[in-house]
């Protein structure tokens, strides 16, 4: 009887150990990918920030402007770009973004542009209209793809296919903290108080304001998209690293408990045998 139980425990320890090996390997892969992704985030951040301030200043300086990108239309249809990962096993990384998006599109007529395999699968399973499935793999999306996507989105926005555009991504704050966020992209809107900085209201547009906005807005969107993508990628690796680290720790704990049980059972079996021998003699 005791023999069967020691064998069972032994099997469980063995399976636990192979699980631990896998989680450990995944953690290491995520850690090395994280380093690369982190470097990318750091180098793309100034671009993202300067682009944002430049656009804000430009929008802030003109008042009588009526470009289609600035005018707020009554919202009939919204579009969300959702950036998630290609694979699971990354803690709450994917589900946190989805939860946030689902809460926001509640009651809205919304379509989604998913980036990443998990996002595509999720929104298809929930019967939410998907704009395009061109970006199934988040890891393969390049900056060129971002700009192409931005151009298409601008065209669709101007054609009235949707009246507002958001991007949902995961902000990489640190290795231990990643926060899902939603950023409004179109129409362009900035707090009017920003103008208090004393920016003069006359701005020279070369060749003219319409042409400037037509050329700049897609660039801006592409840049922001790329920035969000970099943040999300780094967040994914960080989330996976943390999740796999705690999985490895849990496996370690479990192995410890099981080996204690195993030793106890083995000792019990020996004691029992000795008692039987003593009793028999």
């Amino acid at each position: 009887m005791a023999g069967v139980s020691t064998k069972e425990i032994k099997n469980r320890i063995r399976s636990m150990e192979s699980t631990k090996q896998i989680t450990k390997a995944m953690e290491m892969v995520a850690a090395s990918k994280l380093r690369r992704a982190q470097a990318q985030v750091l180098s793309s951040r100034p671009y993202f920030e300067i682009l944002y301030t430049a656009i804000r200043d430009i929008v802030g300086t003109n008042k009588e402007f009526s470009a289609p990108y600035l005018v707020k239309r009554p919202v009939k249809k919204s579009a969300y770009i959702v950036i998630a990962g290609d694979r699971g096993l990354a803690g709450g990384y994917n589900s946190n973004v989805f939860k946030q998006v689902m809460a926001q599109i509640q009651g809205k007529d919304a379509a989604v542009l998913p980036i990443g395999k998990k996002a595509v699968d999720y929104f298809k399973a929930h019967h939410i209209p998907v704009l395009t499935e061109a970006n199934v793999f988040a890891e393969d999306v390049s900056i060129g793809d971002c700009f192409t996507m931005a151009k298409t989105l601008c065209k669709q926005y101007l054609a009235g296919e949707f009246d507002e555009l958001y991007v949902a991504y995961t902000n990489f704050i640190s290795v231990l903290s990643q926060v899902p966020e939603t950023l409004p992209l179109l129409p362009l809107q900035y707090a009017q108080t920003e103008k208090a900085g004393g920016v003069q209201s006359d701005m020279l547009y070369e060749p003219d304001s319409t042409a400037v906005f037509e050329a700049i807005v897609p660039e801006y969107l592409g840049g922001v998209l790329y920035g969000a993508l970099c943040e999300s990628r780094a967040s994914e690796q960080a989330a996976r690293r943390t999740a796999m680290d705690s999985a490895t720790q849990n496996a370690d704990e479990m192995i410890g408990e099981l080996s204690l049980q195993f030793n106890r059972a083995r000792q019990a079996a020996i004691t029992q045998e000795i008692t039987e021998i003593v009793a028999g003699s």
Binding site: V199, M203, L204, Y205, E206, V212
Partner: peptide, 19 residues
């Protein structure tokens, strides 16, 4: 080089944007 030709900028330039 902007879309409408070369643009030179010196100190004290007026506020301006160009693609």
């Amino acid at each position: 080089r902007t879309t409408s030709g070369d643009l030179g900028i010196l100190a004290g330039h007026i506020n301006c944007v160009a693609p």
